[in-house]
Design a binder for these strands. Sequence first.
DNA 1: CCGTTCCTGGAT
DNA 2: ATCCAGGAACGG
Length: 278
Amino acid sequence: MPELPEVETVKRSLEPLIKGEQVINAKINYPNLLKNSSSEKFEEKLEGQIFSSICRRGKYLMFNFDSSLKMIVHLGMSGQLRYEKKNTDPKKHTHVFLELDSEYELRYVDVRKFGRIYIGTYDEVINESSWHKLGPEPLSKEFSFEEFFQVLNDYPKKKIKAVLLDQHAIAGIGNIYADEMLFRSKIHPRSLSGSIPKEIAKKLYKQMREVLKLGIENHGTTLNDYVDGLGDEGSFQFSLKAYGREGQECEYCSQEISKIKVAGRSTHICTNCQVKYC
DNA sequence: CCGTTCCTGGAT
DNA sequence: ATCCAGGAACGG
């Protein structure tokens, strides 16, 4: 579910709601979500903590408190963080309850249980998650085209789609947005990263930033179950040009969009428009 | 580089 | 019954 735009939307929806709120009770009932802590320690560390802010890096969220404690959450494929009233029935597959000093609580819901939660000091959570190994933030001002082009050339023989999906190369891009940016820049996903001409890479850089920005502006893509902290769906699914459109017309040339497998992931392309550089 | 694995549920 | 799904670590 959640790629950079969805995770950013969750952050933006949640931060104003929980800022300054105190956790008066913490409960986790699926311990495997915790990668560096027992359930008991997790609950114990959180109780009494006051939320101060949330920051996002790639697809990770870091929760800050009025103390040195940090909590990192990765939503995996189907994770949701929901701000809900305590007296409401939790959705099925709710694994974590952070009861706040109000009528609300922060709940973590995850059908497939691929999510991960880390708790501890900054150094602990950074090192125990993969946060410290993440590549550059694709939307940051400092991430110039020259730097992007360098990343492509750091993996010269790797397929461009695999590079875009590699969180160590660039942080935050997932299967949907990778297909969208490749479609819009008319690059075949099996192109070798190091073989893409500079002028073409420039298009990809521009579309990478454009697509992610549009994703955020549209509050993410809701295909199945993605929602933000308030349970609201995104709307970028209505603007997708490639992902999930197999059999439909390419908006540039009217040929049918096809679905293939690249880097082990389902991939949507127009074989007529997207050029393969090898 | 690929396949497998962690899970559940919806579609076919 | 089988395949597939927005992620990513791991082993060969």
